[in-house]
Design a protein around this nucleic acid. Structure first.
Length: 947
RNA sequence: GCCCGAGUGGCGGAAUGGUAGACGCAGCGGAUUCAAAAUCCGUCGCCGCAAGGCAUGCGAGUUCGAGUCUCGCCUCGGGCACCA
């Protein structure tokens, strides 16, 4: 061989690793273990470049740790249940199972040429009955321990297709296929009691030292611990057997600003009124329209309905305030009822202004003025009707102090120190005409209270006067796991008229999904499958019905890491194996999983421990977490429309009622280009058919201009996702350049935690570099240097590189490790050191490169006389003696600007440095004979002369 | 709307509060070659002939010194409980 030929060397070394069993995880009590895991993929059909990035990172860690002497577990599996398989069955026919296993086979074939150090003997898919049967067994254990229960919960309901929709299937509040306005509907569903663990899951975050701070923060916010006041507001007249409304608030200090009480449309009182009065029913129906996501609810127009009922203020029973039903109040949060304080809450403020409810301030900012109308205070600057006492010159407003929206006072929470006054703002007249409380909490002791102190004081007041209790609540809700879909793990219970809900007997597990199902109608085929659905009761034997809901796919991914420690055990886990391999030492995955997947896994590990499936040490299953950035790409949407029942390309004709529709196009299907400041895309097939010369954007824009109605929308880069079709197939890079080029390419340049927009430019250059390393190795004997005097310099650079690359890999700074390897390669190429030394240096370089480019590394290792496999060689150690520098270059700043530099002995005393600095030409010139005002010497780093 | 991030040359990016732009890509100039490919050498933030000045999304602040710390904005991305 006379050149670098990845097509020849890559399969060769992959066979060698396999023959040597390099990657088989061995339970070896004599050695420390290291478990590295990348979040397993959904088998969409083809790997994309994001997978290559993710799995190469894990592979670098796995290979590095293996070289460091650890017994490494590095497994791979498939998160194989979920909606895309059902969608494929609906669109193209076929069975989700065939589609899924076909995709798995394809993706495995695509991953293997990457040369990942994966123990494929542990591979499984979550849709394997062997796996989901163990999951069902654990579900029954969870039932026994009271970790699972049923209750009513809302789903997105498509009234035309008569089916439950996932949030993803709700687009602008409408069903994705039917286009019908989605409703919120209640169903009885299964729940895990994750909220019982809220406090523990929150506290344990502190122990996760090797998790990114931002992930811990996101989880803490998600769990959302709050200290607040729960209290009863009594109805002036009992209604439907209810005489009070329980309200929870995190802002009890604003109690005196209450001007209305709001309840959820699903509150028992609202339900009662709904049954009595058609206008309430009509309002509640309207309020239930739209999706169930928090985003949809928060951003929907605020709607309210005055029930006519009134409640008494807990502090001032003479004060009666109205009860409204409002669409932004969720039954799931708190008690499903709030008191509205429009003076200090933006949402309540908007609501009050819309419906003409009073806005009553409870406090004012200390030492700040309150103003009314825009224009009254010319010394203030105004922005959107809000006055600001100070403005920074330039862009935006800051320091909002004097607050007024229109003529209505409004104080946001940002102000830390507030002043609670018995009669804030002197609004006596206003309260006489409006139903605000006339008695006031005496908050004068807190005239300089911060928000938190005032909240504590208000809770203390409520408890002392017996109208409320301080409680700690969590935002975290129980985990609804029921899905009304086929392609998921069946919930192993049977509904019996006499026995109720009965778990399936464990010996009958797995409850297998039936194969004979059709997806021609919407909805869950299990519901329509009598021979699968109708079974005898496991307890009494009478005819009964299987549960037809399946489990959320998050359940599957909440314990796969534990299953990898004993993937074929006859129980969910094998405790001896779990004891050795757990925890996952390094978990790697996308930031998009920062909250749900990781929180569910943390809960599941605890539940598994309670049921005896995991040792106590594994309740936090992931010791260290790294969240890699996403690979993004532009999204292309092609317009089309349907006229007279026929699909036609392009936008619908102007002035027609026909809607323009869009479909996604893959990057490879379009020619994208920039013209002026805009991005354009054309269908590749059309450009090619028309024979347009693509080398000049001018031609492309002319082609576009000739057919404006077909303009493809180019959306900004977003996470690669199959549903948006903005995925790039890495297979052609691998086929053309080899796996090592693909691996080196994704590890260089971008820091792994950052998102990258994919661009293929540079793969050529990457391969050139690898070929250069190969050539440098091959040429050592032919053109080997002769100057042994240079040996020491080369070795010194080598040891510096060992230290830097090791630090880079340890710190997940792969791009910096790669940069150091480039640097050393340049040093090596220029060095005229002896052939013997060069051989040693090159062999070590191969080792340092081996986690990223393992095939090339083996080849170079062998060429330079390395024994055995690099994969088995111990990681090189930097000799501390070789890292010592004797001199250092100190930049000299004059007034903070660099003006000169000096080279001094590394340990020269500051006093000596000062002497040299003061004698420096540039410094003397700047000083012009005067003494410096100040002279700062930072040993080993910098000198600053202040004039 | 709420929570969490990110923003540095033409591009990807580097920089324990201490020389902004390591390293790579692209570009430009040169060597080699009949020519090209490949390879090698050099150059490369912006303005300026130069001295020098200006530069890390925008505006303030702290500091001898700020890409880095603080405050306020802007833009983009992720998550928001049934996408995985």
């Amino acid at each position: 061989m006379s050149r670098y030929d990845p097509a020849e060397i890559e399969p060769k070394w992959q066979k060698a690793w396999e023959a040597a069993g390099c990657f088989t995880a061995r339970h070896d009590p004599a050695r420390p273990k290291y478990y590295v895991l990348e979040m397993f993929p959904y088998p969409s059909g083809r790997i994309h470049i994001g997978h290559v990035r993710n799995y190469t990172m894990g592979d670098v860690v796995a290979r590095y740790k293996s070289s460091c002497g650890f017994s490494v577990l590095h497994p791979m599996g498939w998160d194989a249940f979920g909606m895309p398989a059902e969608n494929a069955a609906m669109e193209r026919g076929g069975h989700p199972k065939d589609w899924t296993y076909g995709n798995i086979a394809q993706m495995r074939d695509q991953m293997k040429p990457l040369g990942l150090s994966i123990d494929w003997s542990r591979e499984f898919a979550t849709c394997d009955p062997e796996y989901y049967g163990q999951q069902q067994s654990m579900f029954i254990d969870f039932m026994e321990k009271g970790l699972v229960y049923r209750k009513a919960a809302v789903v997105n309901w498509d009234p035309v297709d008569m089916t439950v929709l996932a949030n993803e299937q709700v687009i602008d509040g409408k069903g994705w296929r039917s286009g019908a306005e989605v409703e919120r509907r209640e169903l009885t569903q299964w729940f895990f009691r994750i909220s019982d663990f809220a406090g523990e899951l929150l506290e344990a975050l502190d122990g996760l030292k090797d998790w990114p701070e931002k992930v811990r923060l996101m989880q803490a916010n998600w769990i959302g611990q709050s200290r607040g006041l729960q209290m009863a507001w009594h109805l002036t007249a009992p209604h439907a057997g209810m005489d009070r409304i329980e309200v929870y608030t995190t802002r009890p200090d604003t109690l005196m600003g209450a001007s209305f009480l709001g309840i959820s449309p699903d509150h028992p009182l609202a339900r009662a009124l709904e049954a009595e009065r058609p206008e309430v029913a009509a309002f509640c129906a309207e309020a239930r329209k739209g999706g169930t996501t928090e985003e949809a609810i928060e951003t929907a127009e605020k709607l309210g309905f005055d029930t006519g009922l009134k409640v008494r203020h807990p502090v001032d029973p003479d004060c009666e305030i109205p009860v409204w039903i409002a669409n932004f109040i969720l039954m799931d949060y708190g008690t499903g009822a709030i008191f509205g304080c429009p003076g200090h809450d933006q949402r309540d403020h908007d609501f009050a202004r819309k419906y003409g409810l009073p806005i009553i301030p409870a406090f004012k900012p200390r030492d700040k003025e309150v103003v009314s109308e825009e224009g009254e205070r010319p010394d203030l600057l105004w922005h959107d009707g809000v006055g600001y006492a100070s403005f920074d010159k330039g862009s935006g407003p800051s320091n909002p102090v004097a607050i007024c929206i229109g003529s209505i006072p409004y104080i946001p929470w940002k102000i830390e120190v507030v002043e609670y006054l018995p009669n804030p703002f002197g609004l006596t007249t206003q309260t006489e005409h409006q139903p605000g409380p006339k008695k006031h909490l005496d908050m004068s002791a807190f005239s300089e209270a911060t928000g938190d102190e005032a909240i504590d004081a208000a809770i203390a007041h409520a408890e002392a006067h017996g109208y409320g209790t301080g409680v700690t609540k969590y935002r975290l809700r129980d985990w609804g796991l029921s899905r009304q879909r086929y392609w998921g793990c069946p919930i192993p219970v049977v509904h019996c008229e006499s026995c109720g809900v009965v778990p399936e007997k464990k010996e009958n597990l797995p409850v297998r999904l039936p194969d004979d199902v059709s997806f021609e109608q919407p909805g869950n085929p299990l519901d329509r499958h009598p021979t699968w659905r109708d079974v005898p009761c496991p307890a009494c034997g009478k005819p009964a019905r299987r549960e037809t809901d399946t489990m959320d796919t998050f359940v599957d991914s909440s314990w796969y890491y534990a299953r990898f420690t004993a993937p074929h055990a006859k129980t969910p886990t094998d405790l001896a194996e779990a004891e050795y391999w757990m925890n996952v030492d390094q978990y790697i995955g996308g930031i998009e999983h920062a909250i749900l997947h990781l929180l569910y896994s943390r809960f599941f590990a605890r539940a598994m421990h309670i049921c005896g499936h995991l040792p106590a040490k594994a309740v936090e299953p992931f010791d260290a977490l790294f969240t890699q950035g996403m690979v993004t790409h532009e999204i292309f949407e092609e317009p089309y429309h349907i006229a007279d029942g026929v699909e036609r390309p392009g936008h619908s004709p102007i002035n027609s009622d026909i809607p323009t529709r869009y479909r996604y196009r893959m990057p490879e299907e379009v020619v994208a280009f920039t013209y002026g400041d805009s991005r354009y895309a054309l269908l590749r097939a059309e450009v090619e058919a028309a024979g347009v010369d693509r080398s000049d954007p001018e031609n492309l824009i002319n082609f576009q201009t000739s057919r404006p109605h077909t303009r493809i929308e180019v959306r900004p880069p977003a996470k690669m996702s199959k549903s948006k079709k903005n995925v790039v197939d890495p297979m052609d890079i691998i086929a053309r350049y080899g796996a090592d080029t693909a691996r080196w390419f994704v590890m260089s340049d971008s820091p792994p935690e950052r998102d990258v927009e994919w661009t293929a430019a540079g793969a050529d250059a990457t391969q050139k570099h690898l070929a250069r390393v190969w050539r440098l190795a091959a040429e050592i004997d032919v053109r080997g240097g002769t100057d042994t005097a240079q040996d020491q310099a080369l070795l010194k650079a080598l040891h510096r590189t060992i230290a830097d690359v090791t630090a880079g890999i340890e710190g997940f700074a792969f791009n910096k490790a790669v940069a150091k390897l480039y640097e050393f390669t340049n040093t090596f190429a220029k060095s005229d050191a002896s052939a013997a030394t060069k051989r040693v240096a090159m062999r070590t370089l191969a080792q340092l490169m081996s986690p990223m480019v393992p095939h090339l590394a083996e080849e170079v290792w062998t060429m330079t006389g390395g024994e055995g496999l690099v994969a088995r060689a111990p990681w090189p150690k930097a000799d501390p003696a070789m890292l010592v520098e004797n001199t250092v270059t100190l930049p000299i700043q004059i007034n903070g600007k660099r003006r000169a530099e000096i080279v001094v002995a590394k340990d020269l005393s500051p006093t000596e440095v000062e002497k040299i600095v003061l004698a420096d030409e540039a410094v003397m010139k700047a000083l012009a004979g005067a003494a410096p005002k100040k002279l700062i010497v930072v040993p080993g780093r910098i000198v600053n002369v202040v004039l």
